[in-house]
C-alpha cells in the first residue's frame, strides 16, 4: 500500500493551489524515493515538474510503485477542507482505483477522511535534459509575483533581459511601455531579500505573461524564486519547498519570426 503523512499539511494545500489553475489533471507517480508529478498545460506551452521527497514526509510507505491519475480541481476542493495546521495523510491500496486523504487537527480531536476516484490518464512524459543555464536569477518570490502582475497590465508578453548589470523585465502594449530593472544586491545580509544573478552570458527572451502569472501562484511555498535562462530554451521558474522538494515550471519562449 501507499501512505504519505505530512505534519505540515499546509504544504500540500499550497502545492495544489500552485498547480490547479494551470493543469486540469495530472498523475502522481509514487515510488520509494517520493512523489513526482510532471504535466503540461493544455496548450503544451508550459510544463510543471513537482518533486516531494520521501524523507520530507513524517511517515512514508510505498510498497509498490503506484501512479495515481487525479483531477486536480477535485483534489484542490478536498484539500481546501484541511485546516492550515492539520496533518495530511494521502493513502491508497496497491492497484486501487481510489485515493484517501485524511486530515487530523493538531489536538487530534477532529479527524476527516475524503475518498476520491482515481482517473486513468495516459499523459505523455517528457525527458527534461540537465542543462547548464547562461543566467540564473535568485530573487524574492513576492517581488517576482509583483513584477509579473504589474507588467502583465501593459502587454501579453514580457521580455526578460539578463546582463551583468542586472535583470530587466519589460512589456509594451496599447497603454504604453513598462520596464523594471533589478540590480544585483550588493551586500547580501538577508539572503531571502537579495537579488543574486549568475551570468555566463547575457540572455534576452520573450514570454507570455499569462503563464508567468500562473506560476506565481506558488509564491506562498517559498520566500525565494529562481529563474534560469539560456538562449532559445524554456525558462525555468523554481520554487524550493523547504526540506521536502521543489516545484519547477518550464515556459517555452516566443521565438522571433
Amino acid at each position: 500500500m501507499f501512505e504519505a503523512r505530512l505534519l505540515r499539511g499546509s504544504i500540500l494545500k499550497k502545492v495544489l493551489e500552485a498547480i490547479k489553475d494551470l493543469l486540469t489533471q495530472a498523475t502522481f507517480d509514487c515510488d520509494d524515493s517520493g512523489i513526482q508529478l510532471q504535466a503540461m498545460d493544455n496548450s503544451h506551452v508550459s510544463l510543471v515538474s513537482l518533486q516531494l521527497r520521501a524523507d520530507g514526509f513524517d511517515k512514508y510507505r510505498c510498497d509498490r510503485n503506484i501512479s495515481m491519475g487525479m483531477n486536480l480541481n477535485s483534489v484542490a476542493k478536498i484539500l481546501k477542507c484541511a485546516g492550515d495546521k492539520d496533518t495530511v495523510t494521502m493513502k491508497a491500496q496497491d492497484n486501487a482505483d481510489t485515493v484517501t486523504f485524511v486530515f487530523e487537527s493538531p489536538n487530534q480531536e477532529k479527524v476527516s477522511d475524503y475518498e476520491m476516484k482515481l482517473m486513468n490518464l495516459d499523459l505523455e512524459h517528457l525527458g527534461i535534459p540537465e542543462t547548464e543555464y547562461s543566467c540564473t536569477i535568485r530573487m524574492p518570490s513576492a517581488e517576482f509575483a509583483r513584477i509579473c502582475r504589474d507588467l502583465s497590465q501593459f502587454g501579453d508578453s514580457m521580455v526578460i533581459a539578463c546582463t551583468k548589470e542586472g535583470v530587466k523585465f519589460s512589456a509594451t502594449g496599447e497603454i504604453g511601455s513598462a520596464n523594471i530593472k533589478l540590480a544585483q544586491t550588493a551586500s547580501v545580509d538577508k539572503e531571502e531579500e537579495a537579488v543574486i544573478i549568475e551570468m555566463d552570458e547575457p540572455v534576452t527572451l520573450t514570454f507570455a505573461c499569462q503563464y508567468l502569472n500562473y506560476f506565481t501562484k506558488a509564491t506562498s511555498l517559498s520566500p525565494q524564486v529562481q529563474l534560469s535562462m539560456s538562449a532559445d530554451v524554456p525558462l525555468v521558474v523554481e520554487y524550493r519547498i523547504q526540506d521536502i522538494g521543489h516545484i519547477r515550471y518550464y515556459l517555452a519562449p516566443k521565438i522571433e519570426d
Binding site: V45, I128, S157, T206, A252, D257
Partner: peptide, 14 residues
C-alpha cells in the same frame, strides 16, 4: 510579437 513555441520544440517524449 514572435511565435509561441511549445514544450515539444525542446523536450522529447519518453
Amino acid at each position: 510579437k514572435g511565435k509561441q513555441a511549445t514544450m515539444m520544440n525542446f523536450f522529447k517524449k519518453i
